[in-house]
Structures are given as C-alpha cells and as structure tokens.
Design a protein around this nucleic acid. Structure first.
Length: 110
DNA sequence: CTCCTGACTAATA
DNA sequence: CTATTAGCCAGGA
C-alpha cells in the first residue's frame, strides 16, 4: 500500500474485512459503509491496489448487478472459485442472487 | 500542472 | 432488457 493512499483505503479495507463468509457486498455498499457515499469507483480502485497476501476478502465484493467486475478470462475466475467454495452460487448468466446473498450489516462506519 | 483511464453506480430514456 | 450521462477521484504519462 502506498503512503499517500492513507485512510481512504483503510476505511474501505476495514469494511471489506467485515464481510462474513458466504456473503457478498457491492462496491457502492462498501463505499457507503466506509463513509464515502458515491465513491464506488474508488472502492474498486482500492481493491485493485490491494496485495494478494493482505488477508482482505476482496473476492466478496461484486458490482451492483451481482456480477464479478473482473475479466471472466482473468482473475474473475479465481474470484468465482473462491466464492463458490464458500457456498455462493452463480446463475447461468454469471450472477449472484443479491436478494439472498447480500451482506446486511447492522451498523455503518463505527 | 493537464489529460486519460478505470475491480462503479444511479438515474433516465 | 440495453444505452447514455453525469458524478466520483486516485494514479500514471
């Protein structure tokens, strides 16, 4: 993580770490919980800059449609596998049923 | 400094 | 359902 990235990234990572196993969240949701409403894009940017050994469950973050925002041919496959290993299933279109799988946290930022 | 890109979203047509 | 638009802002050239 770069020095200049500061608290914005940390806020995001803190929220992502709170996603329970077998549940998923969306970029926009993470942004709001992190106290950064409207910064969904930056959430994606932050996760992209995240090291693989960070321990942050980045793979539990999907876009608003319940799809993986990564290239299906790239690390998107890895993300899907990680989620399926937790019991998160994808339909024929490659989407997760957010209605049932979306993480419903009790409190925001904190 | 400016310009462009991008793990995004919500609103509108 | 798809397409377009505007809003967001960190980083690299």
């Amino acid at each position: 993580m770069k020095p200049g990235a500061r608290s914005t990234y940390e806020r995001i990572y803190r929220v992502v770490r709170g996603i329970p196993r077998g549940r998923v969240a969306t970029y926009g949701l993470i942004a709001r919980l992190a106290g950064l409403p409207g910064h969904a894009r930056q959430v994606g940017y932050a996760l992209h800059a995240l090291p693989d050994d960070s321990g942050v469950p980045w793979f539990r973050v999907l876009n608003a449609r319940g799809e993986i925002s990564l290239s299906p041919a790239g690390s998107g496959t890895v993300q899907r596998k990680l989620l399926e290993a937790e019991g998160v299933l994808f339909d024929k279109r490659g989407r997760v049923d957010l209605g049932r799988r979306l993480w419903k946290p009790r409190a925001a930022v904190r």
